[in-house]
Design a protein around this nucleic acid. Structure first.
Lengths: 344, 344
DNA sequence: TTTTTAATGAGGAACGTACCTCTTGTCCAT
DNA sequence: ATGGACAAGAGGTACGTTCCTCATTAAAAA
């Protein structure tokens, strides 16, 4: 028995091809009774629309936009690289991609960018921006115009996003905490650094980290967060000072970007060897530090999966098809020197 | 500028559609000079064949077979489940799948199964069997008949497989060793258990594990491997005995399947709380034990990725297309309680 | 030069679906 | 009963590719 086609459905339901087409594509002009007949046939034969033939016929070109934070960040750089790579693969078949970068900390500029998108010519948007009331509104507007919205990396829990693709930040923080607790044997303090605690991701990571440290590893004490506000020099200076001032520090948890200045400061302190360093995101800097044994572990999300998943989900949403959740779940990767993936 | 089609190529190359088709599908009857003209046009326009339209026209149905070890193993069970799930998704579009189970330790039975496959009606085979001379020959025979071969989970390095999908066992062993060394602080011995050291995977994992332990963690000493030979009762008994006899044991490394009897024995010993247990493969048993805090970490490979990758690679090989390696690389997952993925 | 052979052109049908037009049928209100 | 509105049928073209046949041309062999 071969895969049933629309013709088989028509025969089975005792209606014409045109009617089957009307039902399948939810076009008007069909009685409820007839709709039921067709749907019955669909279920009896186990018909599934051949998406590829459909897109071929429809001359479908999915128009997606990726909105990413601009500015120098190794993480977004790798993300963009993954995006570029995906474009030239089968994954991006029939997908026209537009990448827009926005200043991450300027909600108004973000909204301006979102508004400048031509919603009419757009099927979906993947958004990696902090959630603000303005963003929330912009998302609602896009949704209203029929654009599918996917939150990427950091969720927009209070917006009308259709899907979130990324890892749970609390769980990521807990993972970091657990590794820190097990790796750092000696009693002592843990330095926690981040870009900015104004971001929800950082807050959640810190929350998860603290939960685990205080519950399971009483020999450690997590210090208040140090924030760099994207200022590498400042970060380096502050970390240097704190490390010098507090000999009780046994571990460092880096929650966000800016691992390069952090590592520079730690190297300068001469105490890197005795510290257990755990950071987020696999970038050239953290990869190198892992290899050197300077960082004990990196908590990461596979950017390749991230962008492929985003494209698959946007496409699936655009087709009003159900999402295969198991395939889209992004794992919290723990990376140490020994399981560091190859060249990419 | 839209995606170029065969018609555009024909125009650009100044030949007819038929000739373009002959060139693209490597059919005979075209002069070298003309082939060059067409290929030049292809490159200039950046033509990529629309695989879906092609398969539609060709009425292509990929015929793949998965050859998996039979017998009670939670790992192969999850693998089969992942396979079943993939079949009902878009991934398996135009793929007809046949799953064959073979007794893993009987090379002749494996070869019989492989021979019983109708090579003429088969495009590709994914093979998860130990490599023996007989298997090697059977693979060569299938290859000769034009069947693409992918080694799954354990490689067939000396056979003519087209691709290997799985993790590097030495690296997996090193990862386990590194975690063991960092998690188990106290000086002591590490018990190493496996199903059988006759399997290359176990040998390699042990090799990697020992490298790291002896190089980086001199406070630990890995004991000789205990083998269960698929005999749960025996495994339980031996582990019980060894645990009782050696109070210096601080860690347990389980390299293969059979985590259930191992855990039973450890629970019975009453010393599970003080032991650092690291095992392979995420199964219901190891998942439960992770959640209970009985196992410290699991080294895993994502079976979902495994089967999806296998299907993608087989399809790509069947189409004589280049493989997008970065996408097919299977990561060595480190799973602890905190980053245990959701329900599946 | 003529014959043979190989290389190429021209055109069309098919794959499963979408979407279009035009026609026919059915039912209800007037 | 008749018009109108809506439901359904019938048939077509298109999408990009494959694969087929048949005709034509150019080059090599006789």
């Amino acid at each position: 028995m071969n895969k049933p086609t629309v013709h088989d459905i028509a025969k089975e339901a005792g209606v014409s091809l045109a009617t089957v087409d009307r039902v399948l594509n939810a076009r008007p002009g069909v009685r409820d009774k007839t709709i039921a007949k067709v749907q019955g046939a669909v279920e009896r034969l186990g018909y599934v629309r051949d998406t590829y033939a459909a897109n071929l016929a429809r001359q479908r070109l999915y128009q997606f936009a990726f909105v990413l934070p601009e500015g120098p960040s190794q993480f977004t750089d790798t993300l963009k690289a993954a995006l570029k790579e995906a474009i030239s693969s089968q994954i991006a078949d029939r997908i026209a991609l537009k990448v827009v970068t926005v200043p991450a900390h300027d909600p108004h500029a973000i909204v301006r960018s979102l508004r400048s998108l031509n919603a009419a010519a757009l099927d979906g948007v993947a958004l990696m921006v902090p959630e603000t009331p303005q963003v929330r509104d912009a998302v609602a507007r896009l949704k209203a115009e029929g654009v599918r919205i996917v939150a990427l990396v950091s969720d927009l829990p209070n917006s009308q996003r259709d899907y979130f693709i990324g890892i749970n930040s609390i769980a990521a923080g807990r993972t970091a905490g657990s590794l820190m607790g097990r790796f750092a044997h000696a009693q002592g303090e843990v330095l926690v650094v981040t870009n900015s605690m104004r971001s929800r991701d950082s807050l959640d990571r810190r929350l998860g980290f603290d939960q685990v440290i205080s519950d399971d590893f009483p020999h450690l004490m997590a210090l208040p967060s140090i924030e760099s506000y994207d200022d590498a020099a400042r970060m380096e200076q502050v970390v240097c000072d704190v490390i010098a001032a507090r000999p009780g520090i046994v571990g460092v948890y880096s929650m966000g970007s800016g691992n390069m200045p952090l590592l520079n400061a730690l190297r300068a302190s001469g105490r890197l060897g005795e510290l257990t360093v755990i950071s987020h995101e696999l970038t050239p800097a953290t990869r190198q530090a892992l290899q050197n044994g300077e960082i004990a572990a990196v908590i990461a999300q596979n950017v390749g999966h991230l962008v492929r998943s985003a494209m698959r989900v946007l496409r699936t949403l655009s087709d009003d098809l159900p999402i295969f959740e198991a395939q889209e779940r992004i794992r919290i990767d723990i990376i140490i020197r020994e399981n560091l993936p190859g060249s990419r």
